[in-house]
Write a protein that binds this DNA or RNA. Structure first.
Lengths: 212, 212
DNA sequence: TAAAAAATAGGTATAAAGGCTTAGAAATAA
DNA sequence: TTATTTCTAAGCCTTTATACCTATTTTTTA
C-alpha cells in the first residue's frame, strides 16, 4: 500500500466526524480527508475531490446514506463506498449493499478494521465487519422482495412526523400545502404497512430515518 | 490551564471512542484517557483512575448514562461528568443534569466545544452546548414538577400504543374503558413532555419500553 | 419522446387523538 | 390509620389523523 488515498467522510455528527478524521488520518497511506454532513452535500463533493474511499453513515436527516449511495453509484459506478452504522441490523447493510456499497463497518469497530476495510475495498475486494457477515449469509436465504423504499420527500415528511409536528406544521416547514402532507402521510402508511402514526415512527427508527 | 487531566470516556461504540480519544488526546493539557463501554464498566474504573473529567454517552445497552451518572455522583459527589448525546432533546440533558452531570455536549459539537467544556467543568463551572441552552432556559419556566417516571399501567398503555393499537383496541386488550385509556394517554403526554403519538413512541424507544 | 413515477393539492367523510374538568374506588406509603 | 398515588371513568369540545376520491404539474426513466 504505497498509494496516497483521498477519503470523504459522510456523517451528520461533527464530533464523530472529527474523531474519525483523526483516526483515519493517522493511517500512513491517507492523503486527505474531506467531510460532508449529509447525503446531499456529499454528492456535491464527489466530482470536486474524486475520493478513493467514502465512509458513509446511514442514519442522517434529509437524505440518508442508502439513498446517497444509490445516487453516487449511479453516476460514478466505480466509487468505493463503505457503509457505517450503529447497528448490526440486517436491513441496514443489505440496503447499503443493494445500493452499491463495497463494504460495511459497524461503529463498534476498531482502527484495525477501518484499515482493513480501506485496503480491501480499494483493491477491489469487499469488506464487512465480522459481526454482520453472519446476518448477510442468513439474509441470502430470506426474502428477496425488494421492500418499497420511500421517496426523498416521503422520508423528509416522515422525519418531521417523528419530530412531533402536525401535518399543518410540516406543511409550513416544507412550504407546501397541508393537503400534500396529508397525501404523503397516507402513502407512508401504505408503503410502510403501518396503521397509524405509532407505526410510522417505529418504522422510521428501524430504518434509520431518525436517530434514537 | 497547566494541569494534566485524566479522562474517562464512556460510550458503547468503539469507533466513536477511538476517534474521540484521539481528538481529546490532541489537547495539550490531557494526560491519560481511559475507556469504558458501558455504565457498569465505568463504575469499576472510577476508583482505579480517579478521573478529572468523564465523558458519558447516554444511549448505552445495559446501564445507560443517566443511571451510571446517578450512581457515580452518589458515591463521588465531586466527580465531573459531561453528558454526550446525539440529540438536543430536552429530556436527555435534564435527565443528566438531575443525575448530577456538570455539562452536556451534543455530538454535533466540534473540538473547540470539547475543550471549553473540559476547562469550564474542571474549574467548577457548568458547560452546555449552545444548542441546548435555549431548551434549558425554556424548561426552567415550564413545570418544575420533577417529571415522575411512568406508572406500571402507563408503561403498559404506552407499549400498546407503540404496537399501533388505538385507544379502543387497547381498552379491549386490557379490559378497561376506552375513557380510561384516553386518560392514561393524556397523562403520558404530560409526563413525557410530548405533543402527540410520535413523541410518545420516540420516548418509548429511548427508554427501552419497546425494542426496535 | 412517450411512459412512469413523484410531488403537488383539493373534496368529503369518519375515526381518533388531544385538552380540560370532575370524581370515586383501590392500592400504597407515611 | 390517614394521606397520597394510582387506576378507574365520564362529559364536552376541538384538533388532527385516516380513508378514499380525483387530478394537474414536474421530474425521472425507458
Amino acid at each position: 500500500m504505497k498509494e496516497e488515498l483521498t477519503i470523504i467522510l459522510v456523517d451528520d455528527h461533527r464530533l464523530f466526524r472529527e474523531g474519525m478524521k483523526m483516526l483515519v488520518g493517522s493511517l500512513k497511506f491517507i492523503k486527505t480527508i474531506h467531510e460532508a454532513e449529509n447525503g446531499k452535500q456529499f454528492l456535491e463533493l464527489i466530482e470536486k475531490f474524486e475520493p478513493d474511499i467514502v465512509f458513509m453513515d446511514i442514519e442522517m436527516p434529509g437524505m440518508n446514506g442508502i439513498e446517497a449511495t444509490k445516487r453516487a453509484v449511479e453516476k460514478y459506478p466505480f466509487i468505493n463506498i463503505i457503509g457505517l452504522s450503529m447497528y448490526g441490523d440486517e436491513d441496514y447493510y443489505t440496503g447499503m449493499i443493494n445500493a452499491g456499497a463495497k463494504g460495511f463497518l459497524i461503529k463498534n469497530s476498531g482502527i484495525k478494521d477501518v484499515e482493513d476495510a480501506i485496503k480491501n475495498v480499494f483493491e477491489g475486494y469487499n469488506f464487512f465487519s465480522p459481526e454482520i457477515l453472519n446476518g448477510l449469509i442468513n439474509g441470502m436465504f430470506k426474502k428477496n422482495t425488494s421492500r418499497n423504499d420511500l421517496t426523498e420527500r416521503e422520508v423528509e415528511v416522515l422525519y418531521q412526523i417523528c419530530k412531533g409536528l402536525s401535518n399543518q406544521q410540516i406543511a409550513d416547514e416544507l412550504f407546501i400545502s397541508k393537503r400534500t402532507v396529508d397525501k404523503h402521510r397516507e402513502n407512508l402508511l401504505i408503503k410502510t404497512n403501518s396503521k397509524n402514526t405509532a407505526g410510522l415512527v417505529i418504522y422510521a427508527v428501524r430504518n434509520g430515518i431518525v436517530d434514537v
